[in-house]
């Protein structure tokens, strides 16, 4: 993604879709306008393609650097290469690491590259969609090359060990279409930006902590020594001047892709089709559907296993979807309590 993107996207024509009437759940084609903005740039987001993540944690580091996020504990978990463990007040990008007794789909162990002419390949860079040029960031939406094994399981290696695979995924705030954190915030510290993202105003937050258990993904948390809550801002400051977020900028494999959400969704669909064609039938999108329990995520993912394997909820729901029913039940309970009070007095006086 180029840095001119946000500014370019601002200028790009085309009428924005009208916002949906339902503000609590369901698809919302225009979050920013629903939040009260009039002249809005396209909604920006992340598409994190975990199939190319190498677990280098450049995103974690870049995020901490740019946003001056304090150290989040020097811990050795002993469970895996992941010592960060999860998102929180001081971790806005978290790279999950999973080791599985499962072959990597489409992988060809022991294949030699003798017949491959690198100079020939270099000459064709950028000329064919299968080998995009150095500036390209998006995987081309083509089917896998003819030679790719389709759905084959890697053989057991000669010494009798079965194959294993490593899954790596960079997790982040989902910038939900219907963000529970934002809905429940009593001070208005959490707000929707013109880019459709969700940001905390640290000068307003009073540290009530309500947003923390409201988030269905376990993202936002309180910084103990500071009292306030913190989370990913999708680099609101960088977006404002047309730059891409620090993590996407730093990601060496373009596992983290930044751009207008609509464009990312198209790209993601193509990438899944490509992986399926290559025999990686595990590949699936997570959080991209506007029909899901939070109306779709502004930051969505391509995963290679069930979401819960990565520590993500399989079917998150924005809690405020049920809020009207909750108020109704509370009102009925209040009336019952008043009736109970009256009933306590109506019997013969003593």
């Amino acid at each position: 993604m180029t840095e001119a993107n946000t500014t370019a996207a601002r200028g790009s024509g085309g009428d924005p879709p009208p916002p949906s009437e339902n503000l609590l759940y369901g698809p919302q084609p225009n979050v920013a306008q629903a939040a009260g903005y009039t002249d809005v740039p396209p909604r920006m987001g992340f598409f994190t393609d975990t199939s190319v993540c190498i677990g280098c944690k450049a995103c974690e580091v870049a995020c901490k650097e740019w946003n001056s996020v304090p150290e989040d504990g020097l811990e050795f978990t002993g469970m895996s290469y992941d010592n960060t463990q999860g998102l929180g007040a001081d971790t806005w990008r978290h790279v999950a690491f999973i080791e599985q007794r499962k072959p990597l789909g489409g992988q060809e162990p022991g294949v030699g590259h003798e017949g491959f002419d690198v100079f020939e390949a270099a000459r064709s860079l950028g000329t064919s969609p299968a080998s995009p040029g150095p500036g390209a960031t998006a995987p081309s939406p083509q089917a896998a090359p003819a030679g790719a094994p389709a759905g084959e399981i890697s053989p057991v290696s000669p010494d009798g060990r079965t194959e294993l695979r490593w899954l790596m995924a960079s997790d982040v705030c989902k910038h939900c279409t219907h963000a529970a954190c934002l809905d429940v915030c009593p001070t208005g510290a959490l707000f929707r930006t013109e880019f459709g993202t969700v940001v905390v105003q640290e000068d307003v937050c009073n540290g009530c902590g309500y947003c923390v258990p409201a988030c269905p993904y376990g993202v936002i948390d309180q910084r103990k020594e500071d009292g306030r809550v913190w989370k990913c801002t999708l680099c609101y400051d960088r977006l404002g001047v047309g730059m891409e977020p620090a993590c996407a900028k730093a990601c060496p494999t373009d596992s983290i892709q930044f751009g207008p959400l609509e464009e990312l969704r198209e790209r993601a669909a193509a990438r899944v089709a490509q992986l399926h064609a290559a025999g990686v039938t595990d590949a699936r999108l997570y959080g991209e559907s506007p029909e899901d329990g939070v109306g779709g995520d502004g930051a969505f993912f391509l995963l290679l296993d069930e979401p819960e394997v990565y520590g993500l909820p399989p079917d998150p729901q924005v809690t405020t979807r049920d809020l009207p029913a909750m108020w109704k039940h509370a009102a009925m309970a209040a009336v019952s309590l008043a009736a109970l009070g009256v009933a306590s007095f109506v019997r013969r006086p003593r």
């Binding site: 809905d183 429940v184 915030c185 009593p186 208005g188 307003v204 009073n206 540290g207």
Partner: peptide, 20 residues
């Protein structure tokens, strides 16, 4: 509250989606 001095911020908005 993490920032008790900012308690009055609770009353800076009127927000039926926030029970608090």
């Amino acid at each position: 509250l993490g920032r008790p001095a900012r308690f009055v911020n609770m009353l800076r908005v009127f927000k039926p989606t926030s029970p608090m």
